[in-house]
Write a protein that binds this DNA or RNA. Sequence first.
DNA 1: ACTATTTACGCAAACGTTTTCGTATATTGT
DNA 2: ACAATATACGAAAACGTTTGCGTAAATAGT
Lengths: 356, 356
Amino acid sequence: MIIFKREGAPIFQSMKYEAAKLKDISKALGLSASTISRALNDSYEISEKTKILVREYASKINYRPNPVAVNLREKRSRSIGVIIAEIANSFFSQMINGVESVAKSKGYNVIITQSLESYNLELNNLNFLASSSVDGCLISVSTETENFDHIFQLHKKGLPFVCFDRIVEGLKTHKVSFDNYKGAYEATGELLNNGFKRIAMLGNAGHLSITQERLSGYKKALEDAGILFDKSLVRYCMHGGMIYDEVKQAIDQLLRQRKKPDAFFAASDKLTTNIIRYCNNRKIHIPDELGLIGFSNLDIADLLSPSLSVIRQPAFEMGKSAAELLIKLIESKRPPVDFENKVFPPELLIRKSSVK
Amino acid sequence: MIIFKREGAPIFQSMKYEAAKLKDISKALGLSASTISRALNDSYEISEKTKILVREYASKINYRPNPVAVNLREKRSRSIGVIIAEIANSFFSQMINGVESVAKSKGYNVIITQSLESYNLELNNLNFLASSSVDGCLISVSTETENFDHIFQLHKKGLPFVCFDRIVEGLKTHKVSFDNYKGAYEATGELLNNGFKRIAMLGNAGHLSITQERLSGYKKALEDAGILFDKSLVRYCMHGGMIYDEVKQAIDQLLRQRKKPDAFFAASDKLTTNIIRYCNNRKIHIPDELGLIGFSNLDIADLLSPSLSVIRQPAFEMGKSAAELLIKLIESKRPPVDFENKVFPPELLIRKSSVK
DNA sequence: ACTATTTACGCAAACGTTTTCGTATATTGT
DNA sequence: ACAATATACGAAAACGTTTGCGTAAATAGT
């Protein structure tokens, strides 16, 4: 099919969009490209008269510097990579929202990749991002990841990283984390205050920093209440609750014990909802038969019945903060003298699931 | 603080990551850069012997072509823009997941922007994407958008678009949509089958294509059941349910009528959950006092109580499909002879909220 | 054996910027 | 009036690729 050209219309619908270039302005005004560039960048070397002339013409033809060309010249890509577990997860999607908001305002693109809690996928993603020549990387390691060499190597080569939520031990860089200890402490305390005595904890993969911190908070709350810590009341889910069967198995084991727990503290979003799913299936009533409090960023937690008591993480703010730190790292000429570790406080939202 | 260089370690932590270049291989092997480039791109002009030599050395020093340079040379950015209402929304986050998956596999980056249902933000985002020189754009217009000139203009200039979910009338391009008519028909039918007689519809902004299609399906279902369509049972929410007060007001009006509705059909995700929120606040029991079925992609719809009957949209598949069509459009030399309109079928998940 | 063709490679331009350096003109100082 | 200094601009290189063109050597054709 041949489409004939009619006054000014592009021949093909799919014809490439040809944006205005420096040379166009240069030709039109009879000035060199260097002068145009300097005028638009407000260089002191250009007279006010010329600047005005150039600016006016540039805005008239709607000139925007080609970012690809600028990036090549500046030896950067103005994009940052993000590695998270999964996009379709309230915590991470809120976090991405925060990341996008600051990245956009500072002129950076965001490349999102998800590990789905798989070490191999994380490895692939990191290589992909490195070969996409991102200027820096925001990473929340997968639950499966126990070896951080892939991160250390790129970091040593000069790729800036910022750790997010799940911290990479030993990586000398900024970190954005959450007060997991306090969150767990308060959550467990809330259950204790309501008279629950045998509180089980369902945790993410045991080797994760966040899991250990949450375990510590849980233990301390029990200790402060004069309750002996019972190891048999703690179970870990390698996939952070993403796989229902894994959660089911863990709960089965907990409830099959001679001295059954009377409440659950769930240390991740998916664990929390999957506990509810389990209880629904087995017709176990919350909170009468089983108290529940858990980490969750769902904005309909209040609509579950019973309404869900949660530890909420300020995901949006955390994303913003992480992106800010990363961009600061990218744009700083000198290495920072010391690294920030921004710890965000938990927000405890007490509803019905934890109240006897 | 000065850090002294120790064997091979970078002087600064924030030192730029210097990747291997063509010239490095060129120098090492005593061949020209053109030969290296051609060898790596498997050109017929290069001997097999040389190709092997080059490939081996390239992989040894872990060479990857600098995407920014390639993009400049190829006059493209290998990135696509996405405009959606909001990231932290189950439907859109699942859709993005689909988009990212195909984009990544085809070597494209995805730049996500959200309109938050605001026309002005949509306009800003589109300009931002255009000046980021994206190769194409995936758009689901905001509820506020009634004038599509900003889209038409860029489209006319040659920027490829694919419409997603909310269709831009008159834009001659591929579209990925959902069978809204059928979804609404089946949803309404489900309520009718359960004996509900006065079914109200809560819709998104009235001028949206999706709203009108959903309205048609709703009407047809009533008609087929021999029930007269009553205009006073339909309310629209300009912000698609994002603002609770708007939804509240609409429901108030509906329930204040002399002949109150006995069931609601909610034509968007946020409308659905906000109806539940309203009923919770007013202690209106679902489904006894009010039947409910609505659009939703929440994966915990089954955990609400009563469990929520929903029309589910295959968001992930829709995102994949949209991205595929867009990339096809971008990479095709000639304009397509005709445009595809992929319509995805609804998935009706019947649970308790619609069953009397 | 001489021309015609193929093979395998190098040179240089191009993509659109920014920036270093050089310089003609205008301004200032004495 | 003459040197010194500002001022305002242009030429060209650079960023890392890809590719059109040119060409020497090798091969094939007669």
